[in-house]
Protein backbone atom coordinates (compact mmCIF):
# COMPACT_ATOMS: atom_id res chain seq x y z
CA UNK A 1 0.00 0.00 0.00
CA UNK A 2 1.01 3.57 -0.65
CA UNK A 3 2.90 5.42 2.01
CA UNK A 4 3.96 8.97 1.38
CA UNK A 5 6.67 10.81 3.25
CA UNK A 6 6.81 9.76 6.85
CA UNK A 7 6.15 6.07 6.26
CA UNK A 8 3.72 3.41 7.44
CA UNK A 9 4.26 3.79 11.17
CA UNK A 10 3.05 7.34 11.44
CA UNK A 11 0.31 6.66 8.90
CA UNK A 12 -1.10 3.88 11.02
CA UNK A 13 -1.56 6.21 13.98
CA UNK A 14 -3.86 8.47 11.98
CA UNK A 15 -7.52 7.73 11.52
CA UNK A 16 -8.32 6.57 7.97
CA UNK A 17 -10.96 9.26 7.67
CA UNK A 18 -11.84 12.35 9.63
CA UNK A 19 -14.63 14.62 8.46
CA UNK A 20 -14.71 17.94 10.27
CA UNK A 21 -17.81 20.15 10.08
CA UNK A 22 -18.31 19.88 6.33
CA UNK A 23 -21.13 21.84 4.74
CA UNK A 24 -22.42 22.13 1.24
CA UNK A 25 -25.42 23.96 -0.14
CA UNK A 26 -27.03 23.99 -3.56
CA UNK A 27 -28.64 27.37 -4.12
CA UNK A 28 -30.87 27.87 -1.12
CA UNK A 29 -30.80 24.24 -0.06
CA UNK A 30 -28.41 23.28 2.73
CA UNK A 31 -27.71 19.71 1.61
CA UNK A 32 -25.05 18.95 4.23
CA UNK A 33 -24.82 21.07 7.34
CA UNK A 34 -21.77 20.96 9.63
CA UNK A 35 -21.41 17.19 9.65
CA UNK A 36 -18.48 15.65 11.52
CA UNK A 37 -17.53 12.03 11.99
CA UNK A 38 -14.47 9.81 12.09
CA UNK A 39 -13.64 6.34 10.99
CA UNK A 40 -11.07 4.11 12.66
CA UNK A 41 -8.98 1.41 11.03
CA UNK A 42 -11.12 -1.40 9.67
CA UNK A 43 -14.35 0.15 10.84
CA UNK A 44 -17.58 -0.27 8.85
CA UNK A 45 -19.72 2.83 8.93
CA UNK A 46 -23.18 3.11 7.40
CA UNK A 47 -24.71 6.47 6.53
CA UNK A 48 -28.49 6.28 6.75
CA UNK A 49 -31.26 8.78 6.21
CA UNK A 50 -34.44 9.31 4.25
CA UNK A 51 -34.41 10.49 0.64
CA UNK A 52 -32.96 13.96 0.35
CA UNK A 53 -31.26 13.78 3.74
CA UNK A 54 -27.87 14.59 2.19
CA UNK A 55 -26.34 11.10 2.19
CA UNK A 56 -25.12 11.25 -1.39
CA UNK A 57 -23.86 14.80 -1.01
CA UNK A 58 -21.91 13.83 2.10
CA UNK A 59 -20.56 10.80 0.26
CA UNK A 60 -19.41 12.95 -2.66
CA UNK A 61 -17.81 15.48 -0.33
CA UNK A 62 -15.78 12.71 1.27
CA UNK A 63 -14.60 11.22 -2.02
CA UNK A 64 -13.96 14.54 -3.71
CA UNK A 65 -16.58 14.50 -6.46
CA UNK A 66 -18.01 17.62 -4.83
CA UNK A 67 -16.15 20.50 -3.22
CA UNK A 68 -17.15 21.48 0.32
CA UNK A 69 -18.30 25.03 1.05
CA UNK A 70 -16.68 24.79 4.46
CA UNK A 71 -15.18 22.22 6.79
CA UNK A 72 -12.32 19.79 6.14
CA UNK A 73 -11.77 16.20 5.11
CA UNK A 74 -8.68 14.28 6.27
CA UNK A 75 -7.45 10.96 4.88
CA UNK A 76 -4.95 9.34 7.24
CA UNK A 77 -4.35 12.70 8.80
CA UNK A 78 -3.68 14.47 5.52
CA UNK A 79 -5.96 17.37 4.65
CA UNK A 80 -7.44 16.43 1.26
CA UNK A 81 -10.26 18.99 1.26
CA UNK A 82 -9.03 20.71 -1.90
CA UNK A 83 -8.05 17.56 -3.78
CA UNK A 84 -10.15 16.14 -6.61
CA UNK A 85 -11.30 12.53 -6.61
CA UNK A 86 -8.41 11.04 -8.58
CA UNK A 87 -5.84 12.48 -6.19
CA UNK A 88 -7.73 11.02 -3.21
CA UNK A 89 -7.84 7.68 -5.04
CA UNK A 90 -4.05 7.80 -5.39
CA UNK A 91 -3.87 8.23 -1.60
CA UNK A 92 -5.76 5.02 -1.00
CA UNK A 93 -9.46 5.81 -1.27
CA UNK A 94 -11.76 3.83 -3.54
CA UNK A 95 -15.40 4.42 -4.35
CA UNK A 96 -18.20 2.64 -6.15
CA UNK A 97 -21.14 4.14 -7.98
CA UNK A 98 -24.82 3.80 -7.29
CA UNK A 99 -25.56 3.29 -10.98
CA UNK A 100 -22.97 0.86 -12.22
CA UNK A 101 -20.45 2.73 -14.25
CA UNK A 102 -18.11 0.45 -16.13
CA UNK A 103 -16.20 0.25 -19.41
CA UNK A 104 -18.32 -1.35 -22.12
CA UNK A 105 -15.38 -2.54 -24.21
CA UNK A 106 -13.13 -3.88 -21.43
CA UNK A 107 -13.26 -7.38 -20.02
CA UNK A 108 -13.79 -8.05 -16.33
CA UNK A 109 -10.08 -8.80 -16.04
CA UNK A 110 -9.13 -5.55 -17.75
CA UNK A 111 -11.43 -3.60 -15.43
CA UNK A 112 -9.61 -5.04 -12.45
CA UNK A 113 -6.14 -4.41 -13.88
CA UNK A 114 -7.11 -0.85 -14.77
CA UNK A 115 -8.44 -0.29 -11.26
CA UNK A 116 -5.40 -1.95 -9.69
CA UNK A 117 -2.97 0.39 -11.46
CA UNK A 118 -5.02 3.53 -10.80
CA UNK A 119 -3.22 4.56 -7.59
CA UNK A 120 0.21 3.45 -8.89
CA UNK A 121 2.84 5.63 -10.50
CA UNK A 122 3.11 3.47 -13.60
CA UNK A 123 -0.56 3.78 -14.47
CA UNK A 124 0.25 5.40 -17.82
CA UNK A 125 3.48 3.55 -18.45
CA UNK A 126 4.28 2.71 -22.06
CA UNK A 127 6.35 -0.20 -20.92
CA UNK A 128 5.72 -3.18 -18.66
CA UNK A 129 7.73 -6.26 -17.97
CA UNK A 130 5.90 -9.41 -18.90
CA UNK A 131 6.36 -10.82 -15.40
CA UNK A 132 4.65 -7.83 -13.82
CA UNK A 133 1.89 -8.03 -16.41
CA UNK A 134 1.16 -11.67 -15.67
CA UNK A 135 1.34 -11.06 -11.93
CA UNK A 136 -1.30 -8.35 -12.33
CA UNK A 137 -3.43 -10.73 -14.39
CA UNK A 138 -3.17 -13.40 -11.67
CA UNK A 139 -4.18 -10.92 -9.01
CA UNK A 140 -7.13 -9.81 -11.11
CA UNK A 141 -8.19 -13.41 -11.58
CA UNK A 142 -8.06 -14.11 -7.84
CA UNK A 143 -10.10 -11.04 -7.13
CA UNK A 144 -12.67 -12.00 -9.77
CA UNK A 145 -12.96 -15.39 -8.07
CA UNK A 146 -13.36 -13.74 -4.70
CA UNK A 147 -16.35 -11.63 -5.80
CA UNK A 148 -17.90 -14.46 -7.79
CA UNK A 149 -16.98 -13.27 -11.26
CA UNK A 150 -14.33 -15.94 -11.93
CA UNK A 151 -16.23 -17.52 -14.78
CA UNK A 152 -16.86 -14.10 -16.36
CA UNK A 153 -13.21 -13.02 -16.38
CA UNK A 154 -12.95 -12.60 -20.16
CA UNK A 155 -16.42 -11.13 -20.67
CA UNK A 156 -16.83 -7.50 -21.72
CA UNK A 157 -18.51 -4.95 -19.48
CA UNK A 158 -21.35 -4.49 -21.97
CA UNK A 159 -22.30 -8.17 -21.63
CA UNK A 160 -22.67 -8.28 -17.84
CA UNK A 161 -25.97 -8.49 -15.99
CA UNK A 162 -27.02 -5.90 -13.43
CA UNK A 163 -26.01 -8.12 -10.54
CA UNK A 164 -22.64 -8.86 -12.10
CA UNK A 165 -22.04 -5.14 -12.66
CA UNK A 166 -22.63 -4.52 -8.95
CA UNK A 167 -20.11 -7.24 -8.13
CA UNK A 168 -17.66 -5.70 -10.58
CA UNK A 169 -18.08 -2.30 -8.92
CA UNK A 170 -17.04 -3.76 -5.58
CA UNK A 171 -14.22 -5.77 -7.17
CA UNK A 172 -12.83 -2.65 -8.87
CA UNK A 173 -12.81 -0.84 -5.54
CA UNK A 174 -10.93 -3.75 -3.96
CA UNK A 175 -8.48 -4.04 -6.87
CA UNK A 176 -6.96 -0.68 -6.00
CA UNK A 177 -5.93 -2.08 -2.57
CA UNK A 178 -7.36 0.93 -0.75
CA UNK A 179 -7.39 1.53 3.00
CA UNK A 180 -10.86 3.01 2.75
CA UNK A 181 -13.75 2.08 0.47
CA UNK A 182 -16.83 4.20 -0.07
CA UNK A 183 -19.76 2.15 -1.28
CA UNK A 184 -22.67 4.06 -2.79
CA UNK A 185 -25.79 1.88 -2.44
CA UNK A 186 -24.04 -1.32 -3.46
CA UNK A 187 -27.25 -3.34 -3.06
CA UNK A 188 -29.36 -1.10 -5.31
CA UNK A 189 -31.52 -3.19 -7.63
CA UNK A 190 -30.17 -6.55 -6.49
CA UNK A 191 -32.30 -9.64 -6.05
CA UNK A 192 -32.52 -11.06 -2.49
CA UNK A 193 -30.04 -13.81 -3.37
CA UNK A 194 -27.58 -11.36 -4.89
CA UNK A 195 -28.01 -9.10 -1.88
CA UNK A 196 -27.13 -11.94 0.44
CA UNK A 197 -24.03 -12.73 -1.56
CA UNK A 198 -22.99 -9.07 -1.51
CA UNK A 199 -23.47 -8.92 2.26
CA UNK A 200 -21.34 -12.03 2.68
CA UNK A 201 -18.66 -10.51 0.46
CA UNK A 202 -18.59 -7.26 2.44
CA UNK A 203 -18.40 -9.18 5.71
CA UNK A 204 -15.50 -11.26 4.40
CA UNK A 205 -13.32 -8.25 3.54
CA UNK A 206 -10.05 -7.80 5.38
CA UNK A 207 -10.38 -5.79 8.55
CA UNK A 208 -7.53 -3.53 7.44
CA UNK A 209 -9.96 -1.86 5.06
CA UNK A 210 -12.35 0.73 6.45
CA UNK A 211 -15.73 0.96 4.76
CA UNK A 212 -18.23 3.79 4.43
CA UNK A 213 -21.56 2.59 3.17
CA UNK A 214 -24.51 4.60 1.94
CA UNK A 215 -27.34 2.14 1.70
CA UNK A 216 -31.06 2.26 1.36
CA UNK A 217 -31.45 -1.37 2.21
CA UNK A 218 -31.51 -1.50 6.03
CA UNK A 219 -30.80 -5.19 6.23
CA UNK A 220 -27.57 -4.93 4.28
CA UNK A 221 -26.52 -1.74 6.05
CA UNK A 222 -27.20 -2.94 9.59
CA UNK A 223 -25.64 -6.35 8.98
CA UNK A 224 -22.42 -4.95 7.57
CA UNK A 225 -21.98 -1.84 9.72
CA UNK A 226 -20.31 -1.61 13.14
CA UNK A 227 -21.47 1.95 13.50
CA UNK A 228 -24.23 4.03 11.93
CA UNK A 229 -24.73 7.74 11.47
CA UNK A 230 -28.16 9.06 10.56
CA UNK A 231 -28.73 12.23 8.57
CA UNK A 232 -31.81 14.28 8.25
CA UNK A 233 -32.09 17.52 6.25
CA UNK A 234 -28.32 17.62 6.01
CA UNK A 235 -27.73 17.34 9.76
CA UNK A 236 -26.35 14.46 11.74
CA UNK A 237 -29.16 13.47 14.10
CA UNK A 238 -27.94 10.19 15.54
CA UNK A 239 -24.81 8.08 15.84
CA UNK A 240 -24.27 4.67 17.37
CA UNK A 241 -24.06 0.95 16.77
CA UNK A 242 -26.81 -0.74 14.74
CA UNK A 243 -28.80 -1.81 17.84
CA UNK A 244 -28.75 1.66 19.33
CA UNK A 245 -29.82 3.20 16.04
CA UNK A 246 -32.68 0.78 15.62
CA UNK A 247 -33.86 1.56 19.14
CA UNK A 248 -33.47 5.33 18.82
CA UNK A 249 -36.96 6.88 18.89
CA UNK A 250 -35.86 9.93 16.86
CA UNK A 251 -34.43 7.71 14.14
CA UNK A 252 -37.55 5.58 14.10
CA UNK A 253 -39.62 8.69 13.69
CA UNK A 254 -37.71 10.25 10.81
CA UNK A 255 -36.46 7.20 9.02
CA UNK A 256 -37.58 3.75 10.03
CA UNK A 257 -41.16 4.82 10.56
CA UNK A 258 -41.40 6.48 7.19
CA UNK A 259 -39.24 4.28 5.06
CA UNK A 260 -39.45 0.87 6.55
CA UNK A 261 -43.07 0.77 7.65
CA UNK A 262 -42.70 -2.55 9.43
CA UNK A 263 -40.75 -2.11 12.66
CA UNK A 264 -40.92 -5.81 13.51
CA UNK A 265 -38.94 -6.59 10.37
CA UNK A 266 -36.10 -4.27 11.24
CA UNK A 267 -36.07 -5.50 14.83
CA UNK A 268 -35.54 -9.09 13.74
Amino acid sequence: MKATGTGQQTKATFLPLRVDKVSRSFGGLQAVDQVSFTLSVGERLAILGPNGAGKSTLFNLVCGDLAADSGRVYLRGEDVTGLPLHHRVRRGLARTYQTSSVFAGLTVGEHLMLAHRGPEKGRLSLWTRRAIQSEAADQARNLAEQVGLGSRFGVQGSELSHGELRQLEVAMALAAEPFIILLDEPAAGLSPAERERLTALLLSLQTSVAIVLVEHDMDVALTVADRVIVLESGRLIAEGNPEEIEADPLVRAVYLGEQHGQPQESAS
Partner: peptide, 8 residues
Protein backbone atom coordinates in the same frame (compact mmCIF):
# COMPACT_ATOMS: atom_id res chain seq x y z
CA UNK B 1 -15.45 9.92 -15.60
CA UNK B 2 -15.00 6.40 -14.33
CA UNK B 3 -11.37 6.40 -15.43
CA UNK B 4 -10.82 9.53 -13.36
CA UNK B 5 -12.53 7.85 -10.42
CA UNK B 6 -9.93 5.07 -10.61
CA UNK B 7 -7.10 7.52 -10.03
CA UNK B 8 -6.18 8.36 -13.62
Amino acid sequence: DRLQALGY
